[in-house]
Design a binder for these strands. Structure first.
Lengths: 238, 238
DNA sequence: CGGTTTGTTGAGCCCTATCAAGGTAGGTGG
DNA sequence: CCACCTACCTTGATAGGGCTCAACAAACCG
């Protein structure tokens, strides 16, 4: 790590979706109570239970948010990438964080104190609305998670994840790479690494994808999105 | 049911936690774009996928929010009771609802149009903050749900639910009754009714609770909260 | 090249769902 | 008051999906 040239905080803040429409003066206010944080891969930003009086924005790198159960087993809730923020809900609740935050790679963050966040809300109701929309977004994706966990099979969850990564691709085939190690992805999907490995293998054998390390080639998005919704036919592959 | 005397909308709104600190004039504005809705038991308020331009508050009765999977199986996400609201996130997102809403009993609701909600946010930043806190609250409880589903056993989920119902009881024993039918509770806990029945039976046999229909007597909250957290090997309790 | 991290493969088991019968209770009409 | 009905719940038998444990392979790295 060592010497990283300092970030232009004002510029970085201004480029975030959340802050894009704020006036120069507002940005200046926010920047004044923003700190810069650098983390090495594996370093922990805060533990579950920590009290925070601000929220974070990833500039570059990756942060994982996870539960840490007493027995040491972890469950990844979210993988946060560049230009994304996290911890807003904790700030508004004034409660300890329900999750742990850890860097998956060397990461650079901004930490914005709640006082200036509140001030911005007070001065600009459009900003308040954007904040509300942001939290609502988060809430919806969490609801999707609950739906996935409670009524989808392991294969369906993986497929859903791949389709999400594929985004709104024009073509029917696409190459993509996993945003983290398979261990982390497995946890995010609420699977063991072993099961993830087997499911990937199955999809490979069915000719739907090809796996090469973290690279995955999806050959037929349409067919992939239907797979496993129909009960699995007799594996007539020999 | 038939004839229900009309509700005093202003008074009802003013009594809600969310609106309690608003000025008379604000309440009047809100009340002006608030409708009253009556539902019979079993009636559906809106389906998954519906576009809504307002949110709901339960006056009396009970609403369940659930996923409805294509195959007809349902999964209860939330049970909403009097003085609680739902649907805010959908309003701020301007997206179709991810869940279905159905009355568990005869229910009376208020429906507040988003325009007046936005107006209130614009005029009172403290209200905006309360709204943000409310959504954050919701987000946190959803995170708790994810934690429960992904790393707790059926027994642990039920125990957690009972302890939540018990609230912060002074004494170590408490009588409580389930807020809905066991079928609904089971779904809320992501269990089948059969499994719920068996788990209740187990806890009964262990002497921790007594079940009588919807009434449950918890005999030892302390012991209940530890049950099943210790791995059940050689219980050296003799 | 050893060592360490990361991923794969196999065997077996456990938890919980599923399927299939019973019970039980509350309501309704005779 | 009883017979019946329906909704709700319980109980049993069985099976399967995903986890655990354990060994191995591969890739990465100093």
């Amino acid at each position: 790590m060592g010497v990283d040239k300092p970030i232009d905080i004002r510029k970085t803040l201004a480029s975030l979706p959340l802050f894009q429409q704020l006036h120069e003066t507002e940005i200046t206010h926010l920047a004044a109570s923003t700190r810069e944080i650098g983390l090495n891969k594996g370093q922990i930003l805060f533990q579950k239970g920590t009290l925070l009086d601000g929220f974070h924005v990833v500039v570059h790198g990756q942060i994982k948010l996870a539960f840490s159960s007493p027995q040491g087993s972890e469950k990844v809730v979210s993988i946060v990438g560049p230009a994304q923020s996290f911890g807003e809900a904790v700030v508004f609740m004034e409660r300890p964080s329900p999750v742990l935050a850890q860097a998956l790679e060397d990461t650079r963050l901004l930490y914005i104190a709640k006082q200036s966040l509140f001030a911005a809300i007070d001065r600009d109701s459009a900003f308040a609305r954007r904040m509300l929309a942001g939290l609502s977004m988060r809430l919806h994706s969490l609801i999707d998670d609950v739906e996935n966990y409670s009524l989808r099979s392991s294969t369906q969850r993986l497929i859903g994840f791949l389709l999400q990564l594929a985004g709104t691709s024009v073509s029917n085939a696409i190459e993509l790479n996993l945003p983290a190690s398979k261990h982390v992805i497995a946890s995010r999907l609420n699977l063991t690494p072993e099961t993830l490995s087997r499911v990937l293998h199955n999809l490979s054998e069915s000719g739907l994808i090809t796996v090469k390390g973290r690279h995955i080639f999806v050959h037929d998005i349409a067919r992939l999105s239907q797979f496993d919704s129909l009960v699995q036919p007799t594996c007539s592959n020999d």
